[in-house]
């Protein structure tokens, strides 16, 4: 037993040392910067929290994260379900269809959306061709563009946990429900949906957290009209060289994430494997 633990320690040592040295230490230094304001340790935090701009950006970030999370879950659920029902070549094609975007840089995908969503881009021309609208819709450099782009980029992160949860649902449970006289809708509502909830919550938490810190896509598709927290932090550093404010912003974001995670853990016993046998 002792030998095993020693081996395990040795095996994780390089990665741990690397992370400590190049990630944890700089992170601590950055966070320490938040408390180095000229007028006392908490100046930067107060400045931020009392600023209208900051509050608006924080609210906007939250709203975008919630909407994107809901959109991805709604879109991912049927995809994951169909994945569980496919076999052989159909399954492979669809799975790689879901995974394929991972192989293309987020930057490239976001630029593609810029081309698609342009004033005179294919989407607007298509909608106008159909007669849905007379004037080009403003799809870019606002919330709409951010929502579309982020939903697209984050969709696989919702599909995969959902697929894995659904795939673990024993087909015989559905047969049992059927045999006990349940209509298909009852089987779905009483058996299938509750058993897929761990995947729904897992995927949802994942997407939500990624949303909060997402930078490239909102920066390119939303621009200054749809500021998110990560964009604000970046502008503190690059435009104003206000390291202390950037650090304070990071701390607040981190605190929000930790509180939300704590609540999620409390409400949903995901770590206990919820419905494990």
């Amino acid at each position: 037993m002792r030998g095993d633990r020693l081996n395990a320690l040795l095996l994780i040592l390089p990665a741990t040392a690397f992370l400590l040295l190049w990630f944890v230490v700089p992170l601590c230094r950055l966070l320490a910067l938040a408390f180095t304001g000229e007028a006392g340790g908490f100046e930067s935090l107060w400045t931020l929290l009392s600023s209208n701009v900051y509050q608006r950006v924080l609210g906007n970030t939250m709203i975008v994260a919630v909407i994107v999370t809901l959109l991805t879950l709604v879109l991912a659920w049927p995809v994951a379900y169909v994945l569980t029902r496919l076999k052989g070549i159909g399954f492979m094609l669809m799975l790689y269809g879901v995974l394929f975007p991972f192989w293309i840089s987020v930057l490239v995908r976001t630029f593609s959306w810029m081309l698609l969503l342009e004033r005179n881009g294919p989407i607007n021309r298509f909608l106008m061709g159909l007669g849905v609208t007379d004037q080009p819709l403003a799809l870019l450099f606002n919330e709409t563009g951010v929502l579309i782009g982020m939903t697209h980029v984050l969709l696989p992160y919702a599909v995969l946990p959902l697929f894995s949860a659904m795939n673990r649902i024993d087909r015989r449970l559905l047969q049992a429900s059927d045999g006990l006289g349940a209509a298909p809708l009852d089987t779905f509502r009483r058996v299938y949906l509750p058993l897929s909830l761990p995947g729904l919550f897992g995927g949802g938490t994942f997407v939500f957290l990624l949303c909060l810190g997402f930078f490239i896509t909102p920066a390119l598709l939303g621009g200054a009209n749809a500021m998110t927290l990560s964009m604000l932090i970046s502008s503190f550093v690059t435009d104003r060289l206000a390291w202390s404010l950037a650090a304070a912003g990071s701390i607040i974001l981190l605190a929000i994430v930790l509180v939300l995670m704590g609540l999620a853990m409390r409400l949903l016993p995901l770590d206990k494997g919820m419905f494990a046998k």
């Binding site: 024993d170 015989r172 429900s177 045999g179 009483r190």
Partner: peptide
């Protein structure tokens, strides 16, 4: 679901 048959599965298939 319309047959009114009771089935006991080998794995029991109880709703977890």
């Amino acid at each position: 679901r319309h047959r009114n048959i009771g089935m006991v599965f080998q794995s029991y298939a109880l709703f977890p």
